[in-house]
């Protein structure tokens, strides 16, 4: 009971300390929120691209673009004889062009540049390369587009983006720790008399340091909540509208939805904010409040 009372009073002291901070709290939380939003953005982008590329890696589908001289029906019949092929679908150049024009509200001025296309679904992903090699032998094939090619490209982009993002985040993390540490130092200095009195009357170390640590945790929590809001909007509005446009021009179909990871990313972001700010306050109080 006594310990609970002390924890409750430590929290009350922290609330008072935050209240007296006024506008400086807003400044600190805003700067931290920018750093966390960037970190969250990196995580979110990485997760989205990863999900797409993983989706591509397990694709059972590839597309064949035909020369205008080739008959799509003959080629489709030939391919469907292969026992590893599950399904073959023909998208004629007229259908593809109509879909494209409807989606992008494109006026028909220069004629139809799109080729006849055959979408092929295979039974097992490991047979993909074998089936493609056989298809390549057929006459009238202009180009074959398949997901793993795209997967490798996307993975390279993801690695570069992630490494760059982590580097920027680390630099910002150092800045964040410095800002929190300096702010807590200022709060400690402004309350030096209280701290001295509490030390001299024999109050436990953690009651003295607790309010400052809670203060730091509050910064982390508030900043991460502030950072999550724009990230959520970015994901739900910008990314979703981008992916719906992207789907129509991709040679293969797959599911873009990365919504399942968002919760995890936001939890990671909040925990990072709380941990970085809490630990930063902890070490600052250890350094500046002598027992």
């Amino acid at each position: 009971m006594k310990e609970l009372r002390i924890v409750w009073r430590t929290l009350q002291e922290a609330i008072n300390s935050i209240r007296t901070g006024g506008v400086s709290n807003l400044v600190v939380v805003s700067i931290l929120a920018v750093a966390l939003a960037l970190f969250g953005g990196v995580l979110q982008l990485n997760s989205s691209i990863k999900q797409i590329s993983q989706n591509l890696d397990t694709q059972l589908e590839f597309s064949i673009y035909l020369l205008d001289s080739a008959g799509p029906q003959e080629i489709a019949t030939e391919i469907s004889k292969n026992p590893n092929v599950d399904k073959v679908e023909i998208i004629t150049k007229d259908v593809a062009w109509e879909r494209f024009r409807t989606k992008f509200q494109f006026s028909d001025v220069a004629g139809n540049p799109l080729p006849n296309t055959v979408h092929v679904n295979i039974r097992h992903p490991e047979d993909l390369q074998k089936v493609i090699a056989e298809v390549k032998k057929l006459p009238g094939i202009e180009q074959i587009s398949y997901a793993p090619e795209l997967f490798n490209g996307l993975e390279r982009v993801r690695h570069i983006l992630f490494s760059f993002g982590v580097l920027i985040t680390l630099i910002l993390a150092v800045g964040t720790i410095t800002i929190v540490s300096n702010t807590i130092q200022l709060v400690i200095k402004s309350r030096s008399l209280e701290i001295e009195i509490l030390r001299l009357v024999g109050v436990d170390d953690w009651f003295i340091r607790g309010p400052f640590i809670f203060h730091g945790i509050f910064y982390g929590l508030a900043a991460s909540l502030l950072a999550i809001a724009p990230l959520f909007v970015l994901q739900k509005v910008v990314w979703n509208s981008f992916q719906s446009s992207f789907k129509t021009i991709m040679p293969v179909t797959f599911n873009f939805d990365s919504g399942a990871d968002l919760g995890v990313i936001y939890i990671i972001l909040s925990l990072t904010g709380v941990l970085v700010c809490g630990l930063s306050s902890y070490f600052t109080t250890e350094r500046f409040i002598k027992t």
Binding site: K2, E3, R5, I6, R9, E194, I197, L198, V201, G202, V203, D204, F207, I208
Partner: peptide, 9 residues
């Protein structure tokens, strides 16, 4: 103040 810090009721 100090009594509060010491957890007194």
């Amino acid at each position: 103040y100090a009594l509060r810090g010491l957890g007194a009721e």
